[in-house]
Simulated scan of single mutants.
Amino acid sequence: MDGEDMAPEGGDSKGRDSAAVRARYAGAAQAFLELAGQVPDQAWPRPALGEWDVRALTGHTSRALTTVETYLATPATGERVAGPVEYFLAVRDAASPDAIAQRGRETGEALGEDPAAAVRELVQRVTVLVRNTPDDALVATPAGAMALIDYLPTRTFELAVHTLDLARALGLPPPASLAPAVAASLELAGAIGSRLPAAGELLLLLTGRTGLPEGLSVL
C-alpha cells in the first residue's frame, strides 16, 4: 500500500478509509502472530523490553487484541472521543509505568504453556469479530466512547510498535505484513507529537539533530 492509498490516521472517522483502517489492523495482527510463532521455547524468559521478558512483551502486545473484544462488549458511556489522536492525548498519563509493567507480566502469564497457540486463537477470534462489526459500533475505552473505526488505529499503533519490539528482542526481521501499519503509525505519531509542548524537539529528533544514531533521519 503506497502513500496515495492511505487515509490520515489522525483525523475523525469522516475522513478515514474504513477498508484501509481494517486492513492495517488485520495485517498488524497477522504480523504479530507470525512473529510469536517463531519464538523458540527457550526464548520466552529472555529479556525483551525494560522489565519485560519475551513472554510479558507478547502478553502486553496481545492487549491490542483483547481490548477490542472487551471494550466492544462493555456499554459505552461518557464523552465521545473524536479520534485516535485525542485518545492517546487523553490516556498518556492515565496509568503508571509500574502498573503497565505488572499488567504485561500478568497478561503474559495468562497466555499459558503455549503462548504462540494462545496468540493464534486470539488473533483468529478478534479479527473475525472486527470483520463482522460495523464501523460505528461503540467501544468503551478508558478515554470515553469511540466508534470502532476510530479506535482501531490506536490498536494498530500498539501492534506495530510492540511487534517491532518483539522482533528486536528475538533478533528477527519484522514481518513484511507489518509495513502498512508502521507507515500509518508514523503518521499517527506525528499527529500526536504536533499537539505536545515538545513538538519542536520531536521534529529535531526525527530529522537527526539529536538522540538518534548517526545517519538516521527522515530527511
Rank of each mutant, 00 (worst) to 15 (best):
L196H: 02
Y87V: 12
P97F: 12
A19T: 12
R55K: 08
A176I: 11
V21Y: 01
P47R: 01
V68R: 00
P47V: 03
R24M: 07
V126F: 11
E34K: 13
F88C: 02
A29K: 07
R55M: 05
A179W: 08
Q102C: 08
S18W: 05
A160I: 10
R120H: 14
T107W: 08
E69H: 09
R92V: 06
I192V: 15
E187V: 10
R46N: 09
G215Q: 12
G37P: 00
E109G: 15
T77C: 04
V39Q: 00
D114R: 14
I100V: 15
T156V: 05
R168N: 15
A48Q: 00
L33M: 10
G104K: 10
S18P: 01
G108P: 03
F32R: 02
W52R: 03
T77W: 05
I192R: 01
H60I: 11
R55A: 09
T67P: 00
L172W: 06
L206S: 04
V85R: 09
L129W: 07
A48T: 01
S185G: 03
A7E: 02
P153T: 06
D12N: 15
A176E: 15
A183N: 01
V81N: 05
A199S: 07
V91N: 01
D136H: 14
R125M: 07
E121R: 15
R195M: 13
E79I: 06
W44R: 03
L172M: 13
S62V: 03
S177L: 12
V139I: 10
R55I: 05
G211F: 12
G10M: 05
G11L: 10
L65N: 01
E79G: 10
G108L: 11
A76P: 04
A56S: 15
R24Y: 04
E4G: 07
G78E: 10
E51H: 09
G3Q: 14
E51G: 14
G171R: 02
A31R: 00
L166R: 03
L159W: 07
G78W: 12
G215M: 13
E69P: 00
R125F: 06
F32G: 02
V39D: 03
P175H: 08
T133R: 10
P153L: 05
T107D: 14
